[in-house]
Design a protein around this nucleic acid. Structure first.
Length: 281
DNA sequence: CATTTCACCTGGTGGC
DNA sequence: TGCCACCAGGTGAAAT
């Protein structure tokens, strides 16, 4: 999500919405099509960033003349609204041109003044699109803390007294916002902690290992453009390379990169969970 | 409440 | 080749 948000930001910041198209499916939309279309119309895109797993497009007032090519039109302008994109499992947010062939399962197209077009493509339709006015209410942001910036004390506090297993706790977006299945497994491996351990029973030292492992694994993945497990691509349609660094995720039966014992796969909360029985305790 | 399970979707893969 | 079971970057409602 971080990789995608950065890529989209680079290519659409300062651009202006000149048209929208929404597909017929009801599912991918948290806000009705008509409301999104009306809300987006004519607005300037001030910036695009990530909050948790959501990609948030900050929107300025309609009728601001700039386009991406003119630079930072709208710089210094306060956001008035947000277009929020959640990609679910298979969603993509692509920057193309209006002429580019339209992929199957394209649910939304946002035409921009510069001649670019932002497209939301999502075969499984687990993704969601939302438009929010920012009148008086606070901006978008769930209760979960960001794993890249959370500090030791706050991190430890999240898990205190909790009976659920640590893997499930890591995936709970109301605790930490932004940790998905890949990075939950990879960070637990790097911290040497079994996914089935009760969150509340981890020692302070283990929690601190987990926090730093999570942070470094996410930072490393972002540097490599994310993990392209099957069809993941960034805004330019480019794959990431962190999947080459995976130690456990989707490596069931393959030798552990540290001790060579085969990687195990179990189910935790219905999610495939991968770990090394030797390196993780 | 906290925690667990399951439905929501389509598509790819591997076994028979 | 076809058919079928199973798996997949995630949530959020319903059940326990």
């Amino acid at each position: 999500m971080e990789t995608i948000a950065r890529g989209v930001n680079e290519r659409v910041r300062g651009d202006v919405v000149v048209g929208t198209w929404f597909g017929a499916h009801r599912e991918p939309f948290k806000t009705p099509h008509a409301e999104q279309a009306k809300g987006l119309a004519g607005r300037v895109v001030l910036a695009v960033h990530r909050t948790g797993k959501h990609i948030v497009c900050e929107l300025g007032p309609a009728g601001m003349g700039g386009a991406a090519s003119t630079g930072r039109s709208g710089a210094g302008t306060m956001p008035e609204a947000q277009w929020i994109v959640h990609l679910g499992m298979t969603g993509r947010l692509l920057v193309t041109t209006p002429e580019a062939p339209v992929a199957a399962h394209t649910h939304a197209r946002v035409e921009l003044k510069s001649g670019r077009e932002l497209r939301f493509v999502d075969p499984r339709r687990f993704g969601r699109l939302e438009f929010r006015e920012l009148s008086a209410a606070a901006g978008f942001g769930g209760p979960g803390l960001d794993p890249l910036t959370v500090e030791a004390e706050d991190f430890a506090k999240l898990f205190k007294g909790r009976k659920l297993v640590i893997k499930a706790a890591l995936l709970n977006q109301t605790l930490l916002a932004g940790v998905g299945n890949i990075y939950a497994d990879e960070s637990l491996f790097r911290a040497g902690i079994r996914p089935g351990r009760r969150a509340g029973r981890l020692t302070r030292a283990e929690l601190e290992r987990l926090r730093t492992a999570l942070k470094s694994v996410l930072e490393h993945a972002i540097r490599l453009g994310g993990s392209s497990v099957s069809d993941y691509v960034d805004a330019n349609g480019v794959k990431g390379f962190f999947q080459l660094e995976h130690c456990v995720y989707m490596r069931t039966g393959q030798p552990c990169r540290v001790c060579e014992k085969p990687i195990q796969r179990i189910l935790v909360g219905g999610r495939g969970t991968h770990f090394c029985t030797n390196c993780q305790r």
